[in-house]
């Protein structure tokens, strides 16, 4: 089934309104990750947010990365997992792992 909340369409609309927008997409999951690959979240520099890439565990960190990609224009591939002692200092309470691709809308 398609996502009822069309994150990509909303991101495109925000971009057309002149907002600076980044999109985060789940590209791989392991274990009991709450959202499947293809789940998306859009973030604007002004602070608007739509969609999700987890059950709420990593959205804050992803939003920060999104702002960085908006500023640099460089995409990022992020790893999240409970066993992951990365700089993000966030993990998934469910014990799953996800990869999230973050890119700015040019």
């Amino acid at each position: 089934m398609t996502e009822a909340e069309d994150v990509l369409a909303l991101a495109a609309q925000w971009r057309s309104e002149g907002e600076l927008v980044a999109i985060a997409t789940v590209t791989e999951t392991w274990g009991s990750s709450p959202r499947p690959a293809g789940s998306q979240m859009a973030v604007t520099r002004s602070g608007r947010m739509a969609g999700s890439v987890s059950g709420g565990c990593i959205e804050g960190a992803v939003a920060e990365a999104a702002l960085a990609s908006i500023a640099s224009g460089t995409p990022q591939l992020l790893d999240f997992g409970v066993t992951n002692e990365r700089a993000w200092e966030v993990g998934l309470a469910c014990g799953g792992k996800v990869k999230v691709f973050v890119e700015a809308l040019a």
Binding site: L8, A9, A12, R15, I23, T25, T27, P75, Q76, L77, F101, E103, A104, L105, A106
Partner: peptide, 26 residues
């Protein structure tokens, strides 16, 4: 994502055409 890719993807979805957006990682 480039404006051209976004426009092409949006056009395909509006036309209810099944497409895949392929992104090379990273």
């Amino acid at each position: 994502m480039t404006p051209a890719t976004l426009a092409a993807l949006t056009a395909a979805r509006t036309a209810k055409r099944a497409v895949v957006l392929a992104t090379r990682l990273p």
